[in-house]
């Protein structure tokens, strides 16, 4: 089976070459700064944080999971031309190499739907799933809104 062996070798080389390309285009290095969950005042609440990508490749946040909520959705609050402000779902949030994404009131946030009755000081496990870096677990502190905005 020498021929097949050659094919395998070529495929293997191509594979390595492909990996080499990936390395050249850079690897993302994601860290999560100051993750905060606001004390819920109703059925839902928000998670704010800053995603920092210190790597030299882009990455994207694709999903957020948490045991303390029925569902977690990525949203951006935006004001439309009609004068109404709404939360637009964000399917995938790209964080470019060397860039960051700031989640803050009135902008990007993770909406936690059907959230548990959390109190200030609680620690909440959040799983952030990235396209390149995979799942990243963070511990967010539950804080009063007044600690989050002036």
């Amino acid at each position: 089976m020498p021929r097949l062996g050659v094919v395998f070798a070529v495929v293997a080389l191509l594979g390595v070459a492909a990996c080499g390309d990936d390395v050249e285009s850079g690897t993302a290095s994601i860290s999560i700064e100051s993750p905060v969950v606001v004390v819920p005042s109703g059925a839902n609440t928000a998670l704010y944080m800053t995603i920092v990508n210190d790597g030299d490749g882009a990455d994207a946040l694709t999903e957020v999971r948490s045991q303390v909520a029925d569902e977690a959705q990525l949203h951006r609050t935006t004001e439309g031309d009609d004068g109404l402000t709404r939360m637009e779902p964000v399917d995938e949030l790209e964080v470019e190499a060397g860039g960051s994404a700031v989640f803050e009131p009135g902008g990007l946030h993770v909406m936690l739907l059907g959230v548990d009755d959390l109190v200030a000081g609680d620690q909440v496990e959040i799983e952030l799933v990235f396209a390149e870096s995979g799942p990243i677990d963070v511990q967010a502190e539950v804080r009063a809104i007044s600690d989050v905005v002036d």
Binding site: G42, N44, A46, H75, G106, M111, I145
Partner: peptide, 8 residues
């Protein structure tokens, strides 16, 4: 049910 603006 508004998590972002209303409570603020």
């Amino acid at each position: 049910f508004c998590p972002d603006i209303c409570p603020v």
